[in-house]
Design a protein around this nucleic acid. Structure first.
Lengths: 225, 225
DNA sequence: GTCCCCTTTACGGTAGCTTTACCGGAAACG
DNA sequence: CGTTTCCGGTAAAGCTACCGTAAAGGGGAC
């Protein structure tokens, strides 16, 4: 689970990195906001300071929101900057923390946010269960052995049921931003996944093809236990 | 399980000592913070008052944190000293209790903290027993001599059965955040551990390889005696 | 010195990733 | 309705990078 932290203060970056790592997250850092736009496609959540020296934090927030409306976004604002906070929330941020903050609280908010937005310890869709931390999948009673890519693929899709992911987006998120290969590789792994899931491509239970666009995880079976 | 309590008020010391004893802990006491630095290496958890007469509580907290980043640290702060609390948490304290407190609550927090940080007197998985406090391991009846790294590695994995740890995460947690070497060193120690544990890499009883991701301790055998 | 532990390196085996190719069917076009 | 074009499913094959492990060198404790 990757968290992108954008703040111009290296000390804050370091503290948050330590705590987030400790909580089991992978951390991507950006000090000036310029790299943020290159890094956020890989992230599952973004922590963003609105006061950045080089670029406008609001513009960053807006760009992220436009590109990935469902990506959880947590703002850091200075005490008293109430207007910024309101503006940020209007842009679509999901929560905010006022500086100075306790890193523990930030981690708690991150977890709460992930829980709220559908990322949890366990995902359940009918007979399918996914355990991100353990990288285990179960179908009914049986464990479902998945390769690294298969698991990441299924997890990515299942974390946003109903959302269509283009091959490019999947490649960027799972294979990394500078994967050199062709995008048909996604199809091959989708096929392998479907085989293991017992999914028929024509009439799938889990992974649907959206012709000309990409793939999506079916909505319907509730994600809750 | 030893708890170090640092507070300048003898009455508080006595009350906490009584309750902690009652809950089965051994108690180390320090009234002025000076001895704390000598005592904390033996402790499994520290309860620290930030307002100390002779030395600076923050410095004590910081020193402890630096020496033993994993040691759970519980702060006592006076009502209203919100800044102290934030500063303490930023220094890496794990929790705080505001005075005046109920000793029951303190004991509850201590237990919660120990549970959260995965510390137990004894971990048991089938024939394998780990004693974190004594840094001893036993396999069946026989003591299992492990080097420092081997023990830390095994303990880290065993404290979170089923959870996959990447090599990076293990390096960060055990070798320290700025270890310069290559991550293959993890493999070598895993191999050594498996040898001592009688574990076969192909079909392991304890340590599983998750290809492309990392390692994990097998779930199944209950962690409790 | 000796002993132990840690780290690096190298080599071999293989799981699983990528590419390629072929086919069937959907969409587009007349 | 027929033809063409495009898109995606999937089997198969090659290959890469990942991992297990042995061996050697270095460093610290005693």
């Amino acid at each position: 689970m990757k968290v992108l932290v954008v703040d111009d203060d290296p000390a804050i970056l370091e503290v948050l990195e330590g705590y987030l790592r400790g909580a089991g997250f992978q951390v991507l850092k950006d000090e000036d906001g310029a790299e943020a736009l290159a890094l956020f496609p890989q992230a599952d959540l973004v922590i963003l300071d609105l006061m950045l020296p080089k670029v406008d934090g609001f513009q960053v927030a807006q760009a992220i929101r436009q590109a990935r409306p469902e990506l959880p976004l947590l703002l850091l604002t200075a005490r008293g900057e109430e207007e910024d906070r309101v503006r940020g929330l209007e842009l679509g941020a999901d929560d905010y923390v006022v500086k100075p903050f306790s890193p523990r609280e930030v981690v708690a908010r991150v977890k709460a946010l992930l829980r709220r937005t559908g990322l949890r310890e366990e995902l359940r869709y009918g007979p399918l269960r996914l355990l991100p931390m353990k990288r285990e999948a179960h179908l009914g009673e049986d464990p479902l052995p998945l390769s690294r890519l298969e698991f990441d693929l299924l997890l990515t899709l299942a974390q946003h049921p109903g959302v269509v992911f283009s091959r490019e987006r999947l490649l960027e998120k799972i294979w990394g931003p500078d994967f050199p290969g062709v995008d048909r590789v996604v199809d091959v792994h989708i096929a392998a996944l479907r085989k293991k899931l017992g999914d028929d491509a024509e009439n799938p239970r889990f992974i649907e093809t959206v012709r000309g666009v990409g793939y999506r995880f079916r909505e319907g079976d509730a994600p809750f236990p």
